[in-house]
């Protein structure tokens, strides 16, 4: 009973360790798996565990968005590409030098070490101050997005539009080295299609 009580009191902490461990395992798998498909699946594991952590951090809406956007869109996109390109499991080409591997590990460790003071100096516990029940709800996030952060939010739409156009242009099938896409030409083509055809057989 006491054990149960302790467990229930410690449940968020236990969940943190559980999903933090899962996400790390997934990340290590992304790093080590040869097969891109395996890596992608490990990525899903990581992304979903992080979503759980978001719930622990009372970011409910973000957690949902994480699942939908990452697991539902980005990783699926990765998998589509993998299947589209029909990549073999084996990576082509020679191995990286061991020396370079050591160097890379050293740099990554250096980044971690430089960030450590920030970690070590941080308070142990999540603050005990009572949190507003609406914290992290879709309504609150929505109010912020369409209120205080309206301009960045609208700018995001432009970013996405640009990314969309870039994606379409880059992945278009008939890319030839000599022909570059020019929006002015495209508009002119649309407007003067008949004339141009007449002039150039």
């Amino acid at each position: 009973m006491i054990i149960l009580q302790t467990l229930s009191a410690r449940l968020p902490d236990i969940l943190f360790y559980l999903f933090a461990g899962l996400s790390l395992i997934g990340a290590v798998q992304v790093l080590c798996r040869r097969n891109p498909m395996n890596a992608a699946v490990s990525m899903v594991v990581t992304v979903l565990s992080i979503a759980v952590l978001y719930i622990l951090l009372s970011a409910y809406f973000i957690a949902a968005a994480q699942m939908i956007v990452y697991a539902g869109a980005i990783v699926v996109l990765f998998i589509f590409v993998i299947m589209l390109l029909n990549l073999s499991a084996k990576e082509i080409g020679r191995r990286r030098y061991t020396l370079f591997k050591a160097f890379a590990a050293f740099v990554a460790a250096a980044v971690g070490v430089s960030l450590l003071p920030g970690v070590r100096g941080a308070p142990r516990a999540i603050s005990e101050q009572p949190i507003d029940p609406s914290f992290g709800s879709a309504k609150t996030v929505g109010r912020l997005l369409f209120g205080e952060f309206l301009l960045p939010f609208e700018l995001t739409s432009i970013l996405i539009l640009a990314a969309m156009v870039a994606g379409v242009v880059l992945a278009k099938r008939d890319i030839t080295p000599n022909r570059t896409f020019s929006p002015v030409d495209a508009i002119l083509d649309l407007l003067l299609k008949s004339d141009r055809k007449d002039k150039s057989p």
Binding site: F16, Y17, S23, A108, A109, L115, L116, P123
Partner: peptide, 17 residues
Amino acid sequence: PVGLQHYLALSVILFAL
């Protein structure tokens, strides 16, 4: 108890990976 420190540590390790 799990606090800010732990989350930040996780974040650093994920970032390094």
